[in-house]
Design a protein around this nucleic acid. Structure first.
Lengths: 226, 226, 226, 226
DNA sequence: AATGAATGAGGGTTCATTCAT
DNA sequence: TATGAATGAACCCTCATTCAT
C-alpha cells in the first residue's frame, strides 16, 4: 500500500483483512441480488460465489452455509430499516414538538402516534425505493426467511406488537383490540403491499401506497376518523 | 388388464377407472398433509407416493410433476374457499333481504357490503378450522405457491380488487382509494392473520380474529365508523 | 416369466426383486475387490458403482453409505469364516471321536483343544486362499473396520477370549494367563500373518504358516510341549 | 528479513533459524497428539497448524504434506523405541555378564536371548506408558502408517526377523521355524497387545502384558519351557 | 394402470495445497 | 519465514424423473 493510500484511509485494516472483508462484501452483494430475484432455493452457493467472482470454496470461508448468509442479509436489512425508521420517527417527533411548543408546554403531547406512524411508513417506502433488492429479500413473496429458522416477519411483528401495546396502554387504541393478531395483520398487510410496489414502483404513486397502509392501520386509521 | 379381472368387478364405473381416481385421491390427500406440514420443498414425490400407498412411479401417471400437484391442491382449495364464501355471502344477503323486505321493498338495499364482508370472513375462518391443512398450503408462511408460477394470493387479490371496484363504483368507498394496492394490503393482512391463527387456534378466539380483520378492512372499517 | 422358467426355479423371487438382488450382489462384489486392494478410504462410492456397472445414485438405493457397505462385507466375511471354522472343528471332533471311541468310551475325552485349534487354523488358511479379497478386507493392513464403529478384530478377539476362558475353566491352560490380553495377542498375530501370507501365498507354504500360528498359540503350543 | 531484526537477537543460532526449529517442533507435537487420538484421516493440516499456533500455510514450509509429517513422527518414534530397547538389552547383557563372569569366563555365554527379549519387552511397555501418543501413532488400530507408503510394522518386522535369524543360526531356535512368517506373527501380536493396553492401561497390570507377550514369543516361550 | 429399480445431474461441503503479501 | 485468504478438485449424497416389466 502506498503512503498516499495509507494517508487517505488511515483507519484501513491490514492488507489481508481488507481483502477478506472485500471478498465478504462481494459475496453479500452478489447474494442479495440473487436472493432478491430468485429466492433462497433458486440460488446455489456456487452461483453466488461465481457472481462474486470467487471460487466456490471461498463461500465457505465466510459463511457456514447458504442459509446463514440469507439470514445475515435479511436481519441486517431489518436492522437498517429499523434504524432508519426510528430516526425518522424521532425527527418527526422533534418537528412536531417544535410546533406543539407554540401551543402547549406539555412535552407529552408532543408525541403524536399518527405522526410517528406516518414518518415510519414514509421511511419504509423510501428504504424500499433505495434498497429494492434488500426489500425483496425481506418481504419477497417467497418469504423464505422462515426456512431459516427465524422469520423476519416474526421479528417485525414483535416490534409492531410492542408499539401497539404501548398505544393501548396509553388508551390510544380501542381496548378490545387483540395486539398479537393485529400485529400479524399489520405486518402481513405492509409486507405484501411493499413487496408488490417494489416489484414495479410505477404501479402506484408512493403517496398512495403510504395512504393505503395508513388508512388500514389501526393507529392512524383510528385517529384519522376520530 | 385382462377381461377376467374386469369381470370380477362389473360396476358402472369400470374397475380401472375407479381405481385410478382412487389412486389420484390418495395422492392428493397425502400431498396435502405433507405440503401443509413441511412445505413444497420439504417433501419429495417419492414420499408422497409412499404416504399414499402407491409406488414412486405412479405419481407421474397422475401429475406431470410435484409443482403441478401443489398447484392443483392450492387452486382447488381456493376454489372451494370461494364457493363457500360466495354461498355464505348469498345466504347473508337473503337473511338481510328478509329483514329488509319488511322495511323497504327495494331489493338493491338488501345488499349490505359490510354484512357480506362479515359473512365472507366468518366463512374463511370456518374453512380454516375445518381444513387446516388446506389453509396452511394456501397461506402458509412459505407461500410456496409462488414457486409454482402462479401465486395463489394473486388470485385472491384479483377477487378482492374486483369487489373493491364494485364498491367504489357504487360510491361506497372513498374515491381516492387505490384498488390494487388496497387489494394487496387486504390479501396480505388476511393471509398472515389466518396462517398465524391456524397454526394454533388457541392463540385467539375466532371472533377476535374476525374483528381484527374487519376492523382494518376498508369496507367494514369504513362503515363501522360511519 | 414363462411357465417353464417358473418351474425351473419355483422359489425364484419376482423379476424386479431378482434384478435388485443382482445389482446388490454386483455392488458387493465390486466393493469387495476395491476395498481389498485400496482400502475404505481409497475408494469412492461412485467408483464402486461404476465398477459394478450401475449409476452413482444406485449405490444409495442399496446401502446407506460407504461405511455401511464396508461393515456389511466385513461382518459377512467374518460370519462365513466362523461358520466354516466351526464346521471344521466339529468334523475334527467327530473324526477324533471315532478314533477315541476305540480307546476310551468317554465322549468328553473326544474333545482335544489342540486338534480343534489346528482344524480351525487350517480352515482359516483355506478360507484365505479361496477368498483372498475378503480376507484382505478382514485383516488388511488398513484394518479400516475400526473407522466403521465396530472393529472386526474386536469381534474376533471376543470369540478367541471366550474359547480361552473355556479352556482355562477346564484347567487346560496355565491359571495365570490373562485371557483378554492373550486374546488380543492371538488375534493380532493371526491377522498379521494371514494378511501377510495372503498378499502373496508363495511367501511360505501354507503348512508352515499354520505351524507358525500354532506354535505360538497358547493352547496348541502349551499342549504340544507338555 | 531486515538487518535490524537480525541485530536484535544476535544469538549463535540466528533468530530466524531458532524460530524455524521451534515452529517445526510445535507442529510435530501438535500433530502427534492429534494423530494419536484421531488418526491420519481424522485430522486436517489446517487443524494441526492451528493447534500448533501457526498459520495454515506454515505447515507446508516444514513438511511437503500431511503424510510426510505422519511418516516422520512414526519413524522417529520407532527410532526412539529401538534406541531405548537396544540400550535396555545392552544393560541387561551387562548385568547378566557380571553374574556370569563369576561362573564362566566366556563372554559369549553372557548373552541370554530370553533375558534380552524380556529386557526389550519391558522397555517397550515403559515406552508405551511414557509416550502414549507416540505408541498410538505407531500401533494404533488404524495402523495408518500403511497409507504412508511404508508400513512401520514392516520395519519392526524386519528387525524381529533379523534377530530371529541370528538365534536360528546360533541353534537357539527350532530349525523348521519360518523366520519371516514368525516375525510377522510376533509383530502383529505385540502391536495389537500394546495398542490395546495403551488405550487403557488399567486393563491389565503391565507385568501380565509382558508375560503374555513373552509366553507366546518363540524365543522366550521356547526357552522357558525347555 | 401400477410398479419400483435405476438414472444422473447437481447441490452442499471439505480440505490439501498455493501464493501474494 | 510466516501469513491466511483463496483455490478448485473431489466427495458424498439426494431426488425428480424415466422406463422395463
Amino acid at each position: 500500500m502506498s503512503v498516499a493510500e495509507a494517508e487517505i484511509s488511515p483507519s484501513a485494516e491490514s492488507a489481508p483483512a481488507r481483502s477478506r472483508a472485500e471478498t465478504r462484501r462481494r459475496l453479500v452483494a452478489a447474494a442479495t441480488e440473487l436472493f432478491a430475484s430468485e429466492g433462497l432455493h433458486g440460488v446455489t452457493s456456487a452461483r453466488i460465489a461465481r457472481q462474486a467472482g470467487v471460487a466456490a470454496g471461498t463461500f465457505y470461508l465466510h459463511f457456514p452455509d447458504k442459509k446463514a448468509l440469507f439470514r445475515e442479509i435479511a436481519f441486517a436489512a431489518l436492522a437498517e430499516l429499523r434504524a432508519r425508521q426510528n430516526r425518522a420517527a424521532q425527527e418527526a417527533a422533534k418537528a412536531a414538538g417544535g410546533r406543539q411548543a407554540a401551543k402547549a408546554a406539555d412535552p407529552r403531547q408532543a408525541h403524536d402516534p399518527a405522526e410517528e406512524l406516518r414518518a415510519r411508513t414514509e421511511e419504509l417506502l423510501r428504504f424500499a425505493e433505495e434498497r429494492r433488492s434488500l426489500v425483496r429479500v425481506l418481504f419477497g413473496r417467497e418469504q423464505e426467511a422462515s426456512y431459516v429458522g427465524e422469520d423476519v416477519l416474526d421479528a417485525i411483528v414483535a416490534g409492531i406488537e410492542e408499539r401497539l401495546r404501548e398505544r393501548a396502554a396509553a388508551g390510544e387504541l380501542p381496548a378490545h383490540i387483540h395486539p398479537e393478531a393485529t400485529a400479524q395483520a399489520i405486518a402481513g398487510m405492509t409486507a405484501r403491499v411493499v413487496a408488490w410496489w417494489v416489484e414495479d414502483p410505477s404501479r402506484a404513486p408512493r403517496e398512495q401506497v403510504i395512504e393505503t397502509i395508513l388508512r388500514m392501520h389501526p393507529i392512524h386509521g383510528g385517529r384519522a376518523r376520530d
